[in-house]
């Protein structure tokens, strides 16, 4: 273990630019949203103080409950598929040479597609009449139509998200794997460790910190997914793919209920905050436990 970091309060000066720039664009809008959430905004210049009214309304809204439920299922599915798949991909990527570069570039392509274009790509790709996926599925005898069948739509959005974001997990995990010194593998070979043992006791612990980045990013971003399903399904059919952000936007923009929408987004923020806080501390404690186990 390294020595504890020296205490130096002057380090604050180094952090100050970050603090100011982020606070400027984060705190001012946040305060404004809190203000919105306790008022009935009739027009930009006219509003009435209503106290807790919107929170009461939002918290008892059955549609919000079902949107939250759908959201939790979706985010859980996203993590359950993308994290193992990403690790598996990272393990199977070539390690050196032009093949490695080629695979990296190809794999990372979906990450660099603007989010609405992701929706457009899948719209074109999955349509039964002009899309490759839809056409093939129909030819194979499946009754597939993401625009009308709720289940098809849900699966399509999930597959689209897997397509879009698994490369991020794979890139992070690949980079993490590359940072493991060869000596670790040699030691494992001398011990006659099985492939699984190498993964479990050499690779996985070393991947912990990059996986923490990957899990938190995926949790936060999947929890706020908006643009891609908006373009692909518009939240439909019915409410099959109306996740929290879709519902929120319908409220804020569609109905211009700014007050309830603001209350909603603060509740939303608190939910993500709690989830991330718990996960962050859980992953840190797992890591600390493993480090203790190794030094013991």
């Amino acid at each position: 273990m390294s020595v504890a970091k020296p205490v130096n309060q002057r380090a604050w000066w180094l952090v100050l630019p970050v603090l100011v720039s982020v606070a400027f664009s984060a705190l001012i809008p946040l305060m404004t949203v809190v203000n919105y959430s306790v008022q009935d905004i009739l027009s930009p210049s006219q509003s009435v103080f209503v106290g807790w009214e919107w929170y009461k309304e939002v918290l008892r809204d059955p549609e919000l409950h079902s949107a939250l439920f759908r959201q939790l299922i979706f985010s859980a599915a996203v993590l359950a598929i993308q994290i193992p798949l990403g690790i598996a991909l990272a393990l199977s990527m070539p390690k050196e040479g032009w093949r490695s570069s080629l695979v990296l570039v190809l794999l990372a392509m979906p990450l660099l597609v603007p989010w609405n274009v992701v929706g457009t790509i899948w719209q074109i790709f999955a349509r039964a009449d002009i899309g490759l996926l839809g056409y093939v599925l129909t030819q194979l005898g499946f009754d597939y139509n993401y625009a009308q069948e709720p289940w098809d739509a849900w699966i399509t959005v999930l597959v689209m998200d897997v397509w879009h974001w698994t490369p991020l997990v794979a890139l992070l995990a690949f980079a993490g794997l590359r940072a493991i010194p060869e000596a670790y593998y040699q030691a494992a070979r001398i011990d006659g460790a099985s492939r699984w043992a190498v993964f479990r006791y050499v690779q996985l612990p070393k991947l912990r910190s990059v996986l923490m980045i990957a899990v938190l990013l995926r949790l936060m971003d999947s929890f706020m997914i908006y643009t891609e399903p908006f373009v692909l399904t518009g939240g439909g059919p019915g409410t099959a793919t109306t996740f929290l952000s879709q519902y929120l936007t319908q409220k804020a923009v569609g109905q211009f209920d700014l007050g309830p929408a603001a209350a909603f987004s603060l509740v939303y923020f608190l939910i993500i905050l709690l989830l991330c806080f718990v996960l962050y501390n859980f992953m840190k404690s797992v890591g600390a436990g493993e480090q203790q186990a190794r030094s013991a």
């Binding site: 203000n35 008022q39 905004i41």
Partner: peptide
């Protein structure tokens, strides 16, 4: 003014 300040929220942040 566009931040639509209200007294309770101001007190909260203070």
């Amino acid at each position: 003014s566009w931040m639509a300040w209200t007294a309770p929220v101001a007190i909260f942040f203070v």
